[in-house]
Amino acid sequence: MFASRPELPASAVALATAIRPTAPASSRLLPVVEPLSSLLPDGALRRGGTVVVTGSPGWGATSLGLALLTAASTSGHWCAAVGLDDPGVVAMAELGVDLRRVVFVPRPRGAWAAATAELFEGVDVVLARPPARVAHTAARRLLARARDRAAVLVVLAEHRDDWPVPSEIALEVTEAAWHANGRLVSRRAVVRAVGRGITGRPRYVSLWLPGAQGAVAVAC
């Protein structure tokens, strides 16, 4: 009746190897919320990479760094925040971060690099705020560790120079202005993306960081 019959695998193990899918390219990426995707080369965080987030104090660099955790945490990836001794947990909830997937190491007692490296073993995205300018060797070692463990390192710093190694992506808040109407309603921030991962001219995106309900949105 049939011209040919497909070979049956000899055993269940053979079957399992035969039908196992090859790793799709998307597994090397961790999602970010839609408003931020236009800042990143693949529209997502690439595993093994670094993102440096900078901005003047009060301009929304912390919000931007926390917002990068949003989609990763809601899609089930574990995130960590190292060295943020003052995280705005309610603000994180308003940004949409799934707090059940976030661990905090608020005061790593001078061992932030060691703590970050340790967390790469089991956590997909680590947001770290180094206490001072990072030494070149420490930064190199962390990069190698992140690449090895296929995790993402997000560094929060005040100045671009605080992170001594060229990063794939550097996000900088270049402008920020609050809109107030009886209360602080939203902040319009312009974020510039540069780095090795971005070819051509720097990208500029105007965002509500945060918007009226606390989430990030694209401002037109």
């Binding site: 995280p87 947990v89 309610v90 994180m92 909830a93 707090l99 059940r100 976030v102 661990v103 905090f104 190491v105 608020p106 005061r107 790593p108 007692r109 061992a111 060691a114 703590a115 340790e118 967390l119 073993e121």
Partner: peptide, 16 residues
């Protein structure tokens, strides 16, 4: 492992 290094209570989770 991190708790063993930094001591109990060094790693926290958020409670709303």
């Amino acid at each position: 492992r991190l708790e063993q290094r930094l001591g109990h209570g060094a790693v926290t989770v958020a409670r709303l």
